[in-house]
Computed example of a mutant assay.
Amino acid sequence: MAPTDRQIATLALAHALNAAERGLPVIPLTAARLPALRSPHPGRPARTACTGQCGLPGHGVYDATTDPAVVRALFAAAPDVAGYGIACGRGPHRLIGIDLDADTAGPATGQAAGALGATDAHADGALRQLALQHLFTIPPTLTVLTPSGGRHLWLTAPAEVVVPSSASRLAPGIDVRGTGGYLIGPGSLTPHGTYRLAPGTAHLPPAPCPRTLLRLLTPPARPARRTGGANGVGGASGAAHTLRAPEDGEGLVHFVLAARAGQRNTRLFWAACRAYEHGFGDALAPALTEAAVRAGLSLHEARATLASAARMTAGRSEAA
């Protein structure tokens, strides 16, 4: 007998409370892996300036908490709960998620590194190649298996380091969940299956990220585009306005989600170009990828379109 929605939500809450007890800030998610609480600022431009200061829930990862009473309140207020997210970059653990994509997942990590060929483009192989090239080792760490066959490696960062989210910037098939993003907690249910702990890793704490890998994950920040004046999109006053991410990209994500057959690549390319031009393309790439897949593109098509947009707009934000 299939579990009821109430049973699914109850199980998700139990898993979330267990994570919160271990110091991991959590939020309720839908089966689509999106925050389950709706924004309290629908259609208002001020939404981009509020990260929870209004005191109301519905600010995505900014709702994340370890307080069990608040966790219960969030889950009670959220419709269609099927899982939970764990905020990255937040104390005390300051998680980083290394997402090894299933579409490019290669042989198991335990395979000898010497077997890697020059053309090995698998996510596992790409990570091993990076480790060989830059002389670091991924330590044993808590690992979560995704319903599609991918893996999330949980690592931690020092308090003074901010790791941005990115999609395939590190290597093909490797996404990074950093500050402002979240990881899907083990036990979360999706239409394709359940996120679960990898055998032999449940007892492991998230390991510190190797320093060399940490440097690869924190490239120099791209300057944000300042708009206004004759060439800008700001008001007549010409006052400089710095765009922020990922909140400023919510409209772009919804634009992609609304795409119909025949529009999907075009809409994704347009949205990705706007994001990269305004300096938050890498931060928004995971959300745009997920929106494109939900709209009907394959993961491979979505990644290729994002990569094209990144190449097309390279240097535009610096020159603006």
Rank of each mutant, 00 (worst) to 15 (best):
Gly187Ser: 10
Arg196Met: 00
Pro206Arg: 07
Gly180Glu: 08
His192Gln: 10
Val144Gln: 09
Pro205Met: 11
Arg222Asn: 12
Leu170Phe: 00
Pro164Arg: 15
His152Ala: 12
Pro223Phe: 00
Ile174Thr: 06
Ser166Met: 02
Gly232Asp: 12
Gly235Gln: 10
Thr143Asn: 11
Leu155Gly: 00
Leu213Ser: 08
Gly200Thr: 01
Thr218Ala: 07
Val161Arg: 15
Tyr195Gly: 08
Pro140Ala: 04
Gln129Glu: 07
Leu204Pro: 03
Leu189Val: 03
Thr227Tyr: 00
Glu160Ser: 07
Leu132Ile: 04
Pro208Val: 03
Ala207Asn: 10
His134Met: 03
Arg215Ser: 14
Cys209Gln: 14
Gly178Met: 07
Gly187Tyr: 07
Thr227Pro: 02
Phe136Met: 09
His203Asn: 11
Ala221Gly: 06
Ala131Cys: 12
Ala159Met: 10
Thr201Asn: 11
Gln133Lys: 02
Arg225Glu: 14
Leu183Trp: 00
Cys209Gly: 05
Pro199Gln: 14
Tyr195Arg: 08
Val176Cys: 15
Arg215His: 11
Ile184Val: 10
Val233Trp: 02
Gly150Ile: 00
Pro206Gly: 06
Ala230Glu: 15
Ser188Thr: 01
Ser148Phe: 03
Pro164Phe: 03
Thr201Ala: 13
Pro219Arg: 09
Leu216Arg: 08
Pro139Cys: 06
Ser165His: 08
Pro208Phe: 08
Pro199Arg: 14
Tyr195Asp: 13
Pro147Ala: 01
Gly229Asp: 06
Trp154Phe: 06
Leu170Ile: 02
Tyr182Phe: 12
Pro186Val: 01
